[in-house]
Design a protein around this nucleic acid. Structure first.
Lengths: 355, 355
DNA sequence: AAGCCTAATGGTTGCGCTAACAGCAACAAG
DNA sequence: CTTGTTGCTGTTAGCGCAACCATTAGGCTT
């Protein structure tokens, strides 16, 4: 059956179990056993079959296998925007761990859009992926989640809670660090504080605003409505919000940004207006630990993206292994890094973010 | 069949064509026709079937469909490291366009490792993905490619050529821009020039070294071997190479870096040694247009990552649509951006990269 | 020797879907 | 009235694989 030089005889179609069986002189069932490492195959048969597989260039058709076994070996990761370093780091971690566990990983960007999210959910459930890691686009993502669950697809949340949903989740903190960061600005002597947070349908944005307000109230400071801004989680979104924030007669002297993209936009506007940071405008933000080092200029709360990704995938793999216990929750603590943008390293802010 | 409140009757298993057919009082084939928008269904039947689908909560099983149609609606993107902003931008573009065309996208990191790459190729061909976009890990990636092609899976290369492979490819330029950047350093008066490029099994790294050497030779400048360094495409890789480069008695006064991660490592080492950039060490690099703005400090050649991704996916979709023409090549031109790190904006290098 | 276990193998069936064809009305053309 | 022709629907088969249930041979028990 084999060519002289050991090259597979060219079949007009990709080799199937039946081709291998014919080449090895056994039944397809036996070949299937060899492929699946069943013990119920004698050593000699196994060897013969393996040679036959080699010779016809057999690669199992996992589509067919999936159809009968009802598992595909594919997981999915849905985030809002893979270009955000936080999600990129998380995605890298998840991809590596998934590959190590034998899974392929489908990536999807939801653009913080519920509709896109739901469309993805339908496609994924149609493809019968084995599990989904989801950074829910909105507090209203319950429908997406239920759609998947009705199909028996385990879902693990990432980064964001969803109201009324009790599910495995791996996330960082938002409320407490927002308080800490705000307190820090207050300790620097600021009394007019503003916040530029993400869209208000995003759980983390809400929580950060909530923490911000709580910190101010606790110190008896005012929380003017116009000092609280929601924006798209981009640099230009941050800039736009900052412009509105700084347009008032009595603009804030310190700002808490929801993430470093927003912070970058705020810095843009500050420069536009000739405001020095931190002298004229102090800035603190939320961040990831591996962002570009320009961000080393920002005083921030660092969220452990990789650890969150790893924890989430762990949860998912456990579910796939049959874990039926109640919803698990991993809330990973990050670190506050005090740097130049809040005024702590006021002496040398310009040197330190060069690299 | 339907509950009073319109909620799907709970089936013990996900609804299939047969369930819908029963609910609608038609044959499964007719349901299939409705699902696939065949014109050969009367309006009244179509409506009845659609109601039935709704009522039992039918979602087509694309596994089963794939088995008979031999297409899965899944594409794959294999790159070396999704955390590199260049690939992230490209991936974002590809994901968006793939989703728009109705495809899901599997992401894989090869870590510039041929073995990982091949393992991915096997998994992907087992899953019968419809097509693969590949940034080949090495000049030797031919085997990976042939494995996929033998399975009839179209492959489009990204960013890097592979010796002896005639395939659709979308990439930027390396050789010519390397000459331009090197010439620019020479124009600044440098005569001792070094290069820190990626691993020498990576096509772009080779090309950049080739261009670098060609530029020097054309000007009659020496190309000492120790001035040519290959490194892992990371910041620490760049730092390590820079250390070796700057350790010699007569170190280069200007360096061409293979990308901005390497450049960042070089800057680290320069700072370590108290070298000012650009005064004591000039630096130019390859880059993407949306990298962190700290990179706005670097004089660089900007590669259009998104356009390359879009072109590559276009090629792939054309193949899937039946295009059988010869290998197509999109070589996208980027732009040279002269900024502070080469000495062109010597006056204000410290301000400009703050943001 | 009869009964019974185990190891190794094969046969049949069906996962959910669609390609291919077959059937059957209704209606138009000759 | 015959002969297509078109429009809709159903039947059959099979994609590649593994679950499930035979079947056989050989060894073991009693």
């Amino acid at each position: 059956m084999t060519d002289k030089d050991g090259v597979s005889p060219r079949l007009s179609h990709p080799a199937t179990l039946v081709d291998v069986a014919r080449a090895a002189g056994v039944s397809p069932m036996t070949v299937s056993r060899v492929v699946n490492n069943s013990r119920l195959v004698s050593a000699s048969t196994r060897e013969r079959v393996e040679r036959a597989m080699e010779s016809v260039g057999y690669i199992p058709n996992s589509i067919a296998r999936s159809l009968v076994q009802k598992r595909t070996g594919v997981l999915a990761l849905l985030v809002s925007d893979i270009t955000h370093t936080w999600f990129t780091q998380l995605g890298h971690e998840v991809e590596g761990a998934a590959a190590a566990a034998g899974y392929l990983l489908v990536f999807g960007n939801t653009d913080e859009n519920e509709l896109t999210e739901r469309e993805y959910a339908e496609k994924l459930s149609s493809l019968h992926v084995d599990g989904v890691l989801l950074a829910p686009a909105s507090r209203e993502s319950r429908e997406t989640i239920e759609l998947l669950q009705r199909r028996g697809i385990p879902v693990v949340l990432i980064d964001r809670e969803v109201e009324g949903v009790e599910l495995d989740i791996a996330r960082g903190e938002s409320y407490t660090p927002a308080i800490e960061l705000t307190d820090h600005l207050i300790a620097h002597g600021h009394t007019r504080l503003g916040i530029v947070a993400g869209p208000d349908h995003v759980w983390t944005a809400q929580e950060r605003v909530r923490g911000f307000k709580a910190a101010l109230r606790r110190r008896g400071l005012p929380v003017p409505r116009r000092y609280v801004r929601h924006a798209q989680l981009t640099r230009s979104g941050g800039a736009e919000a900052a412009r509105k924030l700084l347009a008032s007669e009595d603009p804030p002297s310190a700002i808490l940004a929801g993430n470093s993209y927003l912070a970058a936009g705020i810095v843009d506007v500050a420069r536009e207006r000739g405001l020095r940071i931190p002298e004229d405008l102090a800035l603190v933000t939320f961040d990831d630990s591996e962002g570009p080092s320009e961000w080393a200029f920002y005083s921030c709360y660092e969220q452990p993206a990789r650890a969150i990704g790893a924890a989430a995938l762990r949860f998912l793999l456990d579910r796939l292994a049959g874990d039926r216990s109640g919803a698990r929750r991993a809330v990973l603590r990050g670190d506050v890094r005090l740097r130049a943008s809040c005024g702590c390293l006021g002496a040398a802010p310009l040197q330190d973010h060069r690299q």
